[in-house]
Amino acid sequence: MNTFNNITIDKDGKTAVVTINRPSKMNALNAATLSEIAQAFHVLEADNEVRGIILTGAGEKAFVAGADIQEFVHLNKEEATQLSRRGHEEVMNVIYNFRKPVIAAINGFALGGGLELALACHLRIAVESAKVGLPEVSLGIIPGYGGTQRLTALVGRGKALEMIMTGDMITATEAYQWGVLNHVVTEAEDLLPKAKSILERTYLRSATAIGAAIEAVNAGIQDSAVGSEAEIRLFGECFGSEDMKEGVAAFLEKRQPNF
């Protein structure tokens, strides 16, 4: 198995656990981490011993608390558009279309790009204390890694717009009630066992049929390809705005933005 700096891969029988391992940064998704996630899924796709993947975060605080905002500061419109496109094509779409089941085990905050990473997975399980949200409008931007499309597909237009327009976090219980999550567990130590128990049930079924089912289900939603292109374009356009400059500056200076 490859050596990584920002993630770990642990195999347990037919299950691979991919852990985002930047706890000092709340497991934020910087470019290097996204690249390593892409590499990991390439490796796991070719590993015939692996039948399912669990994606989780290191530590007790965060699954992934968002993208690494420091990397946004100097991006122009074109660079931001390319950032969004790479995230879609190299990571989020790869997971979304992966032919082996992928479960997000949300152990803490899943915000912004972190929630988008979880939304790309086939199923989502969270510990009761976890919170999720898409706070991008607080930075003067929009979700750029599939959030506008995949959240809407799960919860409907009204709830998706409520989360995106307010930027508010919701509890795991609310996320379950809204349809963001498949399951909620009370204790953190129950999170991975719950994910593994679901995967173990899939291992009793045909891997070929499961891959076909994933493809068929996704095919029915595929006009979101149009929506994804719109999201990529609009995410990039936000980087030309004064709101984005103020939102990111306020975040880095730990103050409220003045929009």
Rank of each mutant, 00 (worst) to 15 (best):
H88V: 11
E71R: 06
E78F: 01
I20L: 15
M92F: 13
E79D: 14
A38E: 11
I7C: 06
I20F: 13
T166K: 01
A32G: 13
E36G: 07
L199H: 02
I232E: 07
D47I: 03
L75V: 06
I53L: 12
D47N: 14
L139Q: 08
A120G: 15
L117T: 11
K14Y: 03
A120Q: 09
E45C: 04
E116N: 10
V127W: 04
A230I: 11
K194Q: 12
R201P: 00
I7Q: 06
H183K: 10
L75H: 02
V18I: 14
G227K: 00
G236A: 03
Y176W: 13
T148V: 09
R22N: 13
E237H: 01
L75Q: 06
V64N: 06
K100P: 03
A153L: 13
Y96A: 15
A213Q: 10
H42L: 03
K11Y: 03
G140F: 03
I7T: 00
L75M: 15
M165D: 15
A153Q: 15
H74E: 10
S24G: 09
I20Y: 06
S84E: 05
L75R: 08
R233C: 04
E36A: 07
I221M: 14
Y145R: 13
S24H: 15
T3C: 09
R205I: 02
Q177H: 12
L204R: 15
L55Y: 07
F235C: 05
R255E: 11
G247I: 01
V43A: 08
E253H: 10
D47V: 02
K131N: 12
E128Y: 02
A130G: 08
E90H: 13
L75I: 05
V226Q: 09
I69R: 10
